[in-house]
């Protein structure tokens, strides 16, 4: 398809003979078309198309080095693309309010600011007054089940607490899209379980479109509404499966036969993707 053919139906000239003018399914938030990216001549994406649904959580999973992080960094506008188009309900990234949670929370938070001021920061950038900022943060805090003091500095907090602050900082601006790049990979398993449930609760309550990169298959399936499985480079879609397990999911979900079955299927796709190279 060329760009001209993607004109929405209602704007198409009368009598045009396009068979289907709707070029993405209803409920789509992010459309990626013809995405191309190479590093030093090594192609990572060679014409990649995908639709990401609105208000849902999509996990991106694949073999090591397949370009999972490259994918969300390009969608989030942190990494330039070589060719293609990424739109958010027709808008560009610059016109879209996004939140981004980095894997390395130590290097993402500002250690010279207290946790609470870290959360204030994006709102200050937006030029919002103090009273309104405090109102929004209070509302945000109410949705979290915090057991620590936000008036401490990040380096005085545990890893899980720091990443919670990171997540709060990215959510306080009420983003249209939230990106998380392996957010829990630096945490121990116990903390990961707690954080997953915390994140699920907040995201489902807010209904924010979420793209999550994970290197942990269990986590990818547990949190997601859809799992995007990628192949080795150059990355293609190995599978894009729905996870229709009921929410809220809790640790008992991990032993639910449907969850185990889904995880087995994704594992199989993953192993095929690894072998096919």
């Amino acid at each position: 398809m060329t760009l001209a053919q993607r004109t929405p139906a209602e704007e198409a000239p009368a009598g045009a003979s396009y068979p289907d003018l709707r070029w993405f399914p209803p409920g789509t938030h992010i459309t990626v078309r013809g995405l191309k990216k190479a590093f030093d001549g090594n192609p990572v994406y060679v014409g990649f198309d995908i639709d990401l649904p609105k208000g849902k959580i999509v996990s991106v999973f694949g073999p090591n080095g397949c370009g999972k992080s490259t994918f969300i960094n390009m969608v989030a506008g942190l990494l330039p693309i070589d060719a293609g188009q990424i739109l958010f309900e027709g808008k560009t990234i610059a016109e879209t309010r996004i939140g981004y949670v980095f894997q390395n929370y130590r290097e993402a938070l500002f250690p010279w600011l207290r946790a609470i001021d870290n959360i204030h920061y994006p709102l200050r950038l937006m030029g919002i007054g103090k009273a309104e900022r405090e109102r929004r943060i209070e509302e945000l805090v109410a949705g979290f089940d915090l057991k620590f003091d936000l008036h401490r500095y990040p380096y005085q907090m545990s890893g899980g607490q720091q990443q919670t602050v990171s997540i709060m900082r990215s959510l306080v601006i009420e983003p249209e899209v939230l990106f998380l790049d392996e957010p829990f990979s630096a945490l121990d398993y116990e903390m990961t379980l707690i954080m997953r449930d915390q994140l699920q609760k907040v995201l489902v309550a807010r209904g924010v479109t979420t793209v999550l990169v994970s290197h942990d298959l269990e986590e990818a399936v547990y949190l997601a509404d859809k799992v995007l499985m990628l192949t080795r480079r150059p990355s293609r879609i190995a599978d894009y499966m729905d996870v229709d397990l009921p929410r809220p999911r809790d640790p008992s979900t991990l032993t639910d036969p449907r969850f185990i079955d889904l995880k087995a299927r994704t594992l199989e796709v993953f192993q095929n993707a690894v072998r096919a190279s």
Binding site: A76, Y100, P122, L125, R169
Partner: peptide
């Protein structure tokens, strides 16, 4: 300077001067 912090500020919409 930690690149991640600069990226974080950029994602939050900070200008070069900010």
């Amino acid at each position: 300077a930690r690149q991640t912090r600069i990226l974080a500020a950029k994602v939050m919409g900070a200008s070069r001067a900010r």
